[in-house]
Each structure stands twice: as C-alpha cells, then as structure tokens.
Design a binder for these strands. Structure first.
Length: 348
DNA sequence: ACTCGGCACCTGACCGCTTC
DNA sequence: GAAGCGGTCAGGTGCCGAGT
C-alpha cells in the first residue's frame, strides 16, 4: 500500500504515542502501519467515488485554430494601426491560466535538478525540443530550473497590465507565485530575476526559423519602493505566434506539493499534448534535464510525480511498461489525460 | 521496512509605514 | 484612526538520506 506523506506522518505520530504509553516498539510499529493502511484504503475508496476530472484546458480543432489565428492577426494589425499603442507580449488569456509557449516546456531548458544541488554555469548546451518537427534550443548562462520558469511566466503576466515592461513588488510576486513571503523567498526571487537576465538562448525550430533571445530579461530596475521593473526582448513575442502555446489552469500547479519540480515539468510538458504518446523512459530523462545518479532513482521520482498529477486530476492515469527482453531503454512511459473540451464549448 | 535527525520551507502573528 | 501593504521572525511541518 503506497501511503501519502500525510498518512506517513500520521503513522509516525501514532507510533510515538504508542511508545509513550509503554507499548513495545514492534507492536507500536505494527498497529501504526495497520492504522495508516486503513486510512489510505478509505481515502482511495473515497477517491473512486469522486466525479470524473474536469478537462484541464481548452482544445480546438485545426480548423478552429486557423480561424482564430487569422482573427488574432487581423486584431493585432487593426489595434496597432488604430492606436499605435504597444500590445502585451502574451496573447489574451484568463487570469486563472498561464500561457505556455510549447518550445520552452518541451525540453530541458528549465530543468528539474535536486534543489539542494548548486547551480552550474552552462557555457553551451543544446536542448532537443520534443515534437513532430523537432528543433533545438541552444543555451548559454546560469542553470535554469522550475523556479526560474515560474518567475519568468509570472513576469510576463505582470507585463500584460503595462505592455513593454513588467512592474511588481516582491510581495506581489511572492503572493502570485504562491511562495512564502519570508526573506529566503525574497532572496530566491531576486536570484531568479538575476539568472533570467543572464540567460541567452537561440531557438531553432521550423515555425520560427532561427530566433535569438540575447537575454530573457533585457533590463531590470529596482525602484525606490523596492518594486522590480523588468523589460523583455521583443523576440519573446514571437514564441506565442502561430497559436503554439497552451493556456494551462494555474490551479494544477498550485495544488502540487512543494519541491515537486519533476511534477511541475511533467505538468507543463504534457499540457502541450492533447493525446500524449508513450515516451521511452530514457528520452524523458534527457528531455527534463535531470541528472540522476541512478536510473531507478529517477524512476522513483517519476512514479511520485505522476501520482501527484493524478491526485490533482491533471492525469487520469499512467503506466511505465516493463523492459522488453531485459533490454535497457525499452521501458515506455504512458499517460492518459482527461477528455478535452472543444474551444467553442469552453467559451460558454 | 522502519526510525531518526537535519534541513529547507511554510504559516501565521506581529510590527512599521503609507494612504485615505 | 482604520485599512492595506510590505517586511521580519519563531515555530511548525514535511522531505530525504543515513542508520538499523
């Protein structure tokens, strides 16, 4: 029986209580485990009675996408000529969602390394972009992880209200990110912004050609009141061209447990797939830019991360197939996502 | 399989400053 | 003076590796 962290904590507490009451350690361990297993079984049965998960994000057919692209481009042209005002870098979306450009989350640009390990400077790295058309992202700068990705997307979100630059106080950032508001989190936020300033990348994919972004944040000012004012390279806008982005509900990431970087990476990776195909385990390790000492350690992390995505109702289920003829590299990771709604249904 | 201890991180209470 | 916002800090919680 696989126990959640809460159930494990309950088991520990019960074990200690038993010891305090003079129960022998072996007997205390047995009753604590039995009690935790009962709780887990009850929780599992309750879960089975819950309603089916709601669709995680919108889906549109290729025809609907083509119409929307045309309308969006026409709108952009009209508003630019009519008002001369700057348009936000990101497309229009609900406050409850985050817009995810596919290339950024289908590779290991924002990695999932152990948060306790020190960050390395990456002089030159080439990340393969997973997808039918493939492509690469060449990166130079400090090692980026999931916290950097969260800060970058959040900064882009702030940019919507003041097109051209994003201004926000540290507190506004921390509240939006769902991080603690203590000194450590402020330092972490400051460090993330610094890394994004030093991040140079070149994206080479079929739809964009060769797109150079000399810095994810071209300019960062700390204002008198402590607010950050950040400017972006205009190439960032092109990441959202051609509707190659996904609107993902924020609630999934908010529900994930802390220090679940692999779960966060998988959440964004699979959010860009309507019907995910089985992926070789070895490919997934390379894609997410993890550096596991042992492959089975990654498998354990992956199992926990996929379990979390099921718990937050982003996935319906998952499976890791066995090795074929004992050969390494033949294990496949399969996931099942809930049914998507069509774009028109979602608008209602 | 289980316990333990160190560590990282979060929560909530509290305080100071600014604005109305 | 009240309300809102931003910042600090102590205590609590959970994770993870080491040990048994």
């Amino acid at each position: 029986m696989k126990l959640t962290s809460a159930e494990k904590a309950e088991r520990r507490t019960h074990f200690r209580q038993q010891l305090e009451q003079g129960v022998e350690p072996r007997e205390a361990a047995r009753t604590a485990t039995e009690r935790a297993n009962n709780a887990a079984t009850a929780s599992m049965l309750m879960g089975a009675l819950e309603k089916l998960p709601q669709p995680p994000d919108w889906y549109e057919s290729p025809e609907e996408r083509a119409v929307r692209t045309e309308m969006t481009n026409a709108d952009k042209g009209m508003s630019a000529t009519a008002t001369g005002a700057r348009e936000p870098l990101t497309p229009d979306h609900r406050e409850t969602t985050v817009v995810v450009p596919h290339e950024f989350v289908r590779c290991g640009l924002f990695g999932v390394a152990d948060p306790k390990s020190s960050r390395q400077h990456v002089p030159h790295a080439v990340f393969e972009v997973y997808g039918t058309n493939g492509g690469t992202i060449t990166y130079c700068g400090p090692e980026l992880r999931q916290d950097d990705r969260q800060v970058f997307f959040e900064a882009l979100n702030f940019e919507r209200s003041t097109p051209g630059s994003a201004t926000a106080t540290p507190n506004q950032f921390l509240v939006k990110l769902g991080w603690s508001r203590n000194t450590e989190s402020r330092k972490k936020l400051h460090a993330c912004i610094g890394r994004l300033q030093d991040a140079q990348l070149t994206i080479e994919v079929r739809r964009l050609g060769r797109l150079v972004i000399p810095s994810l944040l071209t300019h960062v000012d700390v204002l008198d009141d402590g607010s950050y004012r950040m400017k972006f390279h205009d190439s960032v806008r092109r990441l959202y061209d051609d509707n190659c982005y996904t609107c993902l509900r924020r609630e999934y990431e908010q529900k994930l447990e802390r220090r679940s970087d692999l779960a966060r990476w998988l959440l964004l990776f699979y959010s860009t797939h309507q019907t995910p195909r089985p992926i070789p385990l070895a490919t997934l390790i390379e894609l997410c830019n993890d550096a596991p000492e042992k492959k089975y350690a990654f498998k354990d992390k992956l199992t926990a991360a996929l379990g979390q995505l099921v718990r937050v109702k982003f996935l319906l289920g998952w499976n890791i197939t066995r090795k074929v003829d004992g050969k390494s590299g033949t294990e496949m990771v399969e996931v099942k996502r809930p049914r998507m709604v069509r774009f028109e249904d979602q608008k209602q």
